Amino acid sequence: MQFPGRIIKAGEKSATVVRALKLRLNDALGLTEGLALDADNPAFGPKMTQAVMLFQARHVDSQGAPLKVDGEVGSVAWEALFGADSVPGAVDTDDALLRDALKIAQGEAAAGVREVRPPLNRGPRVDDYQTRTGLRLKAGTDGFAWCACFLYYCFDEAAKQAGRRNPLIKTAGCQDHWNKARAAGITEITGARATQKPALVKPGMIFIMAFGGGTGHTGIVESVQGGFITTIEGNSNNEGSRDGFGVFRLTRKINTINRGFIDYAGR
Rank of each mutant, 00 (worst) to 15 (best):
K103N: 14
T49V: 13
N258S: 00
G11T: 12
K197C: 09
V126Q: 11
I220P: 14
R24I: 09
T230F: 01
A96H: 04
F82Y: 15
T141Y: 01
A183W: 04
T16C: 02
G204L: 14
C174S: 13
T171C: 08
M48C: 11
G216K: 02
L102W: 02
F228Q: 10
I262G: 13
N166S: 04
I232R: 12
F261D: 10
V201W: 01
T190K: 03
V113H: 13
A148W: 01
T16M: 06
R267Q: 14
I104M: 10
A101F: 04
K68R: 04
M48T: 13
A148T: 12
T133M: 09
V126M: 06
V113F: 02
T230N: 07
D95P: 07
T16L: 11
D142P: 11
I208Y: 03
A10Q: 15
S86E: 14
F82P: 14
D92N: 05
A159M: 12
I169E: 15
V224L: 05
G227S: 10
G212D: 12
G185E: 02
A39F: 11
D38G: 09
F150N: 11
L135M: 06
T131E: 08
G191D: 07
G74I: 01
L35D: 15
T195K: 02
N237G: 10
F155E: 10
A148I: 01
L81R: 03
A15I: 03
R6H: 13
A111L: 15
R164N: 00
L81T: 03
A36T: 03
G266F: 00
L200F: 05
R122F: 01
K170Q: 07
Y129F: 11
R6G: 05
N235H: 01
S223T: 03
L97R: 12
P88C: 02
A183H: 06
R252A: 04
P198Y: 01
E222G: 05
V247G: 12
T131M: 02
P42G: 00
N26S: 08
I206P: 12
A181E: 10
R125C: 04
V113W: 10
L21V: 15
V73Y: 05
E157L: 08
T218S: 14
G213I: 05
P4F: 00
L25Y: 13
A105C: 14
V52S: 09
T49G: 03
D243W: 07
Q50R: 09
A77H: 06
L200G: 04
T133H: 03
L21E: 15
H217L: 01
